[in-house]
């Protein structure tokens, strides 16, 4: 049940972003979790309902997007879906594949309400993607 430890790490991140963004309330927390991350979404949800109490995310909804397991074949170059314990190429069946998606354990975005409407001068994203 390491999901509790993962959830505590999540809450620390959420609280620090909420302070940075001057949020009075976090409305929702959106995660992307792949089955090969080793984290069970249902257990993480249970931990979340305990961990959110008394925080800025007390009323927040946890939205977990389950990421598909996809592999790229080193032999035929195809990108195919796979099962967590069968990461073979769906096209040619070769086992020389690399995982493209499915091990994510990621905080994707937050929805929040800022303290005052006037304080929204900062860009919504604190990251730049070119």
């Amino acid at each position: 049940m390491h999901e509790l430890a993962v959830c505590q790490a999540l809450m620390e991140q959420v609280e620090s972003i909420a302070i940075e963004e001057r949020a009075q309330q976090v409305v929702s927390i959106h995660l992307g979790i792949g089955p090969l991350s080793g984290v069970e979404p249902r257990l993480l949800e249970q931990a979340f309902y305990v961990a959110r109490a008394g925080t800025v995310a007390e009323q927040a909804e946890l939205v977990i997007e389950s990421m598909a397991v996809q592999v790229s074949c080193k032999q035929c170059g195809q990108l195919t879906e796979a099962l967590p314990n069968r990461l073979l190429c769906g096209n040619c069946g070769d086992w020389h594949t690399s995982l493209v998606s499915g091990d994510e354990l990621q905080l994707q975005h937050l929805e929040l309400i800022r303290q005052t409407q006037e304080e929204t001068a900062e860009p919504a994203s604190h990251q730049q993607f070119n």
């Binding site: 990421m67 975005h109 309400i113």
Partner: peptide, 29 residues
């Protein structure tokens, strides 16, 4: 590969239907 679509123009991170502020993070937990 799994989250790149979120960052494209018009992707889910650019605004929210409910009118709340959306903050993209993309940090590992």
């Amino acid at each position: 590969h799994g989250n790149a679509h979120l960052l494209k123009p018009g992707g889910r991170l650019s605004k929210t239907a409910s009118g709340h502020e959306a903050v993209s993070v993309l940090h590992g937990l």
